[in-house]
Measured scan of single mutants.
Amino acid sequence: HNLTITQGKLFFHYNPKLCLSEIHKMEEVSGTKGRQERNDIALKTNGDQASCENELLKFSYIRTSFDKILLRWEPYWPPDFRDLLGFMLFYKEAPYQNVTEFDGQDACGSNSWTVVDIDPPLRSNDPKSQNHPGWLMRGLKPWTQYAIFVKTLVTFSDERRTYGAKSDIIYVQTDATNPSVPLDPISVSNSSSQIILKWKPPSDPNGNITHYLVFWERQAEDSELFELDYCLKGLKLPSRTWSPPFESEDSQKHNQSEYEDSAGECCSCPKTDSQILKELEESSFRKTFEDYLHNVVFVPRKTSSGTGAEDPRPSRKRRSLGDVGNVTVAVPTVAAFPNTSSTSVPTSPEEHRPFEKVVNKESLVISGLRHFTGYRIELQACNQDTPEERCSVAAYVSARTMPEAKADDIVGPVTHEIFENNVVHLMWQEPKEPNGLIVLYEVSYRRYGDEELHLCVSRKHFALERGCRLRGLSPGNYSVRIRATSLAGNGSWTEPTYFYVTDYLDVPSNIA
């Protein structure tokens, strides 16, 4: 807008934040220059609390790290170098490059900038070799853009010569660093050979998330399962459950009422301010606690030095998902009996873990797994792929695949051998790939016309006998059925096997 004052003059007093240069501009645009008398524009009460600059400061050096910015700028000295009290560095987070010096300023003089007072450097006698002032900004957020400017702080001049310097606002972004852990990993099994893994992005990506790394490792069953005799009275049979499938998407929606109208769909109840505040506090606490764990609990591995020492970490090797089922080394339970199943799973520490690289999504279907087997899954978020990966501390989750139908069934015939004193040795093959492992066998036998009897055969007993022995049988026709019990439950009964026990007292003698 054009402003013209045809008559009258300007009068400025007691404006401590208004620089004289701005008042002189007002004289020019209003056409009143030359009308004012000496005392109409006070030299001592206008701009006496402001830094009124008329020179431009330029930054000469900028260096960044993930949490620091090192700045240096060209030296500046007023005509009387004693008038320079120091520099004021202003900075704040700036997602967009549209910041002005006066953003967030209120009537009390406060604003949204963080201000650092910096002492002037030592003055050199040689004007050509003056030290460049600077400042190291610490405690910054990774991968965050900051708006920065600097200006001088000078003393009051009796001659009211307006001098000083100020830089333009520059924008500097800190470097990326390792992201925080992925949030809320959930693993479920939808079949006997697959596990579905879902997660949420890290709360602090500290860069642009480029991919996720998912490692999985087959877990050995508890050692007590191999040692305890679950045929003993009072000892509860062990059981394991597989990871249940995901709930429906509708039930997972946030901010939804727990109660549904019987007449149909209901609208979600909005969260109160107290609920939102509580969630923010919980989120802040979780982030602080995660940072504490990362800094205190997890110790970084030592990389190899120039002395030739090897990095103890196993090298990563990509495998196809079809090879995942046989990740671990199978060892027989008892070496003397080769027909026992290889369900003991000690994992070799030198073995390469299978892994998958996930790009542009937060889910993965891990296939080719062994049925009813526990897996430990390790999830890392990465925001750099080359020249070397920059990934987060791992988040861990466990899951067990679903049982395989008929995996616990005894394959092959049940054979028998009759000894003296009416002892019958029953023999059968253990299931080759049971659900988890076989903890015991149930032997059901009966003599024709009598009630059915049951015998429990422990895992250890089966390994020693290759089956079991029935003792003290009365003469007669017998039928026997056997079924295995694994961590997933009972298998199917075998087809009945028949044998006849004679009275050993009636056996004919070869003595003449």
Score class of each variant (00 low, 15 high):
204 D>M: 06
342 S>M: 08
361 K>F: 08
284 S>L: 11
238 P>R: 04
366 I>P: 01
306 G>V: 12
417 E>G: 12
510 N>T: 00
373 T>I: 14
332 P>N: 05
252 Q>C: 12
234 G>Q: 06
308 G>P: 15
307 T>A: 08
276 I>H: 10
277 L>D: 02
265 E>I: 12
322 G>Q: 07
282 E>W: 03
293 L>Q: 03
364 L>M: 14
306 G>P: 08
340 T>W: 14
334 V>R: 10
246 F>L: 12
365 V>H: 13
463 A>H: 05
487 L>D: 12
496 P>Q: 03
336 A>L: 10
243 S>D: 07
346 P>I: 13
392 S>T: 00
289 F>N: 01
377 I>R: 00
274 S>I: 02
358 V>A: 15
379 L>F: 08
456 C>S: 02
251 S>A: 05
463 A>F: 09
465 E>T: 11
395 A>E: 13
347 T>V: 06
292 Y>H: 04
250 D>W: 14
383 N>W: 01
503 D>T: 06
266 C>Y: 03
417 E>M: 09
458 S>K: 01
404 E>F: 15
480 V>A: 09
292 Y>V: 02
277 L>K: 14
373 T>D: 13
496 P>K: 04
246 F>M: 14
491 G>Q: 03
424 V>S: 02
495 E>V: 10
235 L>W: 08
325 G>S: 10
444 S>P: 01
238 P>E: 03
363 S>A: 12
372 F>K: 01
243 S>G: 09
210 T>N: 11
478 Y>E: 00
282 E>I: 05
434 P>G: 04
438 I>V: 10
432 K>D: 10
472 G>V: 12
262 S>V: 10
261 D>L: 13
423 V>H: 02
221 E>Q: 04
461 H>A: 10
226 F>I: 14
231 C>Q: 01
502 T>Y: 15
302 K>H: 11
279 E>H: 03
251 S>N: 11
475 P>A: 09
407 A>Q: 12
478 Y>L: 01
287 K>G: 02
451 E>S: 15
420 E>G: 15
356 E>Y: 05
244 P>G: 13
463 A>W: 12
503 D>Y: 14
465 E>S: 13
505 L>D: 05
460 K>Y: 09
335 A>V: 13
504 Y>Q: 12
480 V>Y: 08
232 L>T: 07
225 L>I: 08
312 P>G: 06
465 E>K: 05
236 K>T: 03
357 K>M: 13
325 G>A: 15
397 V>W: 14
505 L>W: 10
261 D>V: 15
471 R>I: 05
260 E>F: 06
233 K>V: 14
361 K>S: 11
262 S>A: 14
278 K>S: 06
410 I>V: 13
372 F>C: 04
272 T>G: 03
456 C>K: 01
212 Y>S: 12
450 D>K: 12
326 N>Q: 09
393 V>H: 14
305 S>H: 11
384 Q>L: 04
395 A>I: 11
482 I>H: 02
242 W>I: 04
388 E>N: 06
330 A>S: 15
412 G>W: 06
481 R>A: 14
385 D>R: 07
235 L>H: 06
349 P>V: 09
494 T>V: 14
408 D>E: 01
216 W>M: 11
304 S>L: 06
326 N>R: 12
238 P>S: 04
209 I>D: 05
244 P>T: 09
357 K>Y: 14
446 R>A: 07
404 E>P: 11
471 R>A: 11
494 T>R: 03
329 V>K: 07
242 W>V: 12
307 T>S: 10
401 T>I: 14
472 G>P: 07
317 K>D: 13
441 Y>C: 01
207 G>R: 00
453 L>M: 08
458 S>D: 04
359 V>E: 06
213 L>F: 10
243 S>M: 12
367 S>I: 10
265 E>P: 14
462 F>V: 11
287 K>A: 05
276 I>N: 07
227 E>H: 13
288 T>M: 13
344 S>T: 11
368 G>P: 04
474 S>Y: 14
407 A>C: 01
375 Y>N: 01
340 T>M: 13
244 P>C: 12
274 S>H: 05
371 H>C: 06
318 R>N: 05
468 C>I: 11
494 T>F: 03
266 C>K: 11
475 P>Y: 10
275 Q>I: 03
362 E>I: 15
335 A>E: 10
481 R>L: 08
439 V>F: 04
218 R>P: 07
266 C>A: 15
218 R>M: 15
412 G>E: 05
418 I>Q: 03
420 E>D: 12
320 S>P: 05
241 T>N: 12
488 A>T: 14
315 S>D: 10
210 T>V: 10
431 P>V: 05
275 Q>N: 04
292 Y>W: 14
465 E>N: 12
432 K>F: 07
438 I>D: 02
487 L>A: 03
210 T>R: 10
327 V>M: 10
472 G>D: 03
269 C>E: 03
399 A>N: 01
332 P>V: 07
431 P>F: 02
406 K>S: 07
336 A>D: 14
340 T>V: 09
281 E>R: 15
482 I>P: 00
384 Q>P: 02
279 E>K: 03
306 G>Q: 06
380 Q>V: 06
212 Y>K: 00
254 H>P: 08
468 C>W: 08
351 E>K: 09
330 A>M: 09
507 V>H: 03
321 L>A: 14
385 D>M: 12
477 N>G: 11
453 L>A: 09
424 V>Y: 14
481 R>K: 14
444 S>D: 13
383 N>Y: 02
228 L>P: 14
289 F>Q: 03
321 L>T: 13
249 E>A: 13
458 S>L: 07
243 S>W: 11
371 H>L: 07
490 N>T: 15
295 N>G: 09
290 E>K: 01
230 Y>F: 07
235 L>I: 13
435 N>P: 01
462 F>Y: 04
487 L>C: 14
418 I>G: 12
480 V>W: 10
397 V>L: 10
450 D>Q: 13
481 R>I: 06
240 R>C: 06
297 V>K: 02
235 L>E: 02
384 Q>E: 09
226 F>N: 06
439 V>S: 04
345 V>D: 07
440 L>Q: 06
422 N>Q: 07
416 H>K: 09
487 L>M: 14
481 R>P: 00
407 A>F: 10
463 A>N: 07
315 S>Y: 09
392 S>N: 00
336 A>C: 10
276 I>S: 06
271 K>I: 05
388 E>W: 08
279 E>C: 02
205 P>R: 05
273 D>S: 14
508 P>L: 03
416 H>T: 10
310 E>L: 08
372 F>W: 06
371 H>E: 15
203 S>E: 11
232 L>K: 08
338 P>L: 11
436 G>S: 14
322 G>P: 08
470 L>W: 07
222 D>T: 09
267 C>K: 03
448 Y>K: 13
400 R>S: 07
381 A>D: 00
326 N>F: 13
304 S>C: 10
452 E>A: 12
320 S>W: 11
263 A>W: 03
231 C>I: 01
457 V>N: 04
378 E>L: 08
383 N>S: 06
415 T>S: 11
317 K>Q: 14
386 T>I: 10
501 V>I: 04
392 S>D: 00
431 P>L: 06
461 H>T: 11
381 A>M: 00
216 W>E: 04
500 Y>L: 08
300 P>L: 05
276 I>L: 06
287 K>W: 10
273 D>V: 06
450 D>Y: 13
337 F>W: 08
235 L>S: 04
298 F>P: 02
402 M>I: 09
445 Y>A: 14
341 S>R: 10
478 Y>R: 00
434 P>R: 05
251 S>W: 00
293 L>G: 03
383 N>H: 05
461 H>M: 11
475 P>E: 12
294 H>G: 04
286 R>P: 01
392 S>P: 01
457 V>T: 11
460 K>L: 12
283 S>H: 14
497 T>M: 05
399 A>D: 01
247 E>V: 11
222 D>R: 13
320 S>V: 11
414 V>F: 10
270 P>R: 05
244 P>L: 07
340 T>L: 10
427 M>I: 14
278 K>L: 05
231 C>W: 01
292 Y>L: 02
340 T>H: 03
360 N>Y: 10
387 P>W: 11
432 K>H: 08
367 S>V: 07
323 D>V: 11
380 Q>I: 14
345 V>T: 06
497 T>G: 06
364 L>E: 15
286 R>C: 03
349 P>T: 14
224 E>P: 12
501 V>G: 01
338 P>M: 11
440 L>E: 09
272 T>M: 04
259 Y>P: 10
495 E>M: 02
432 K>N: 13
464 L>N: 09
494 T>W: 01
321 L>P: 12
444 S>L: 07
216 W>F: 10
498 Y>W: 09
324 V>S: 04
349 P>L: 09
421 N>T: 10
501 V>F: 13
293 L>C: 02
398 S>C: 08
338 P>N: 04
292 Y>A: 03
221 E>R: 15
238 P>Q: 13
407 A>G: 04
366 I>K: 14
497 T>P: 01
319 R>T: 13
267 C>Q: 01
460 K>A: 10
394 A>W: 12
251 S>P: 14
299 V>T: 04
456 C>V: 01
321 L>H: 08
316 R>V: 12
452 E>M: 15
223 S>A: 12
269 C>S: 05
467 G>M: 12
306 G>K: 10
455 L>P: 01
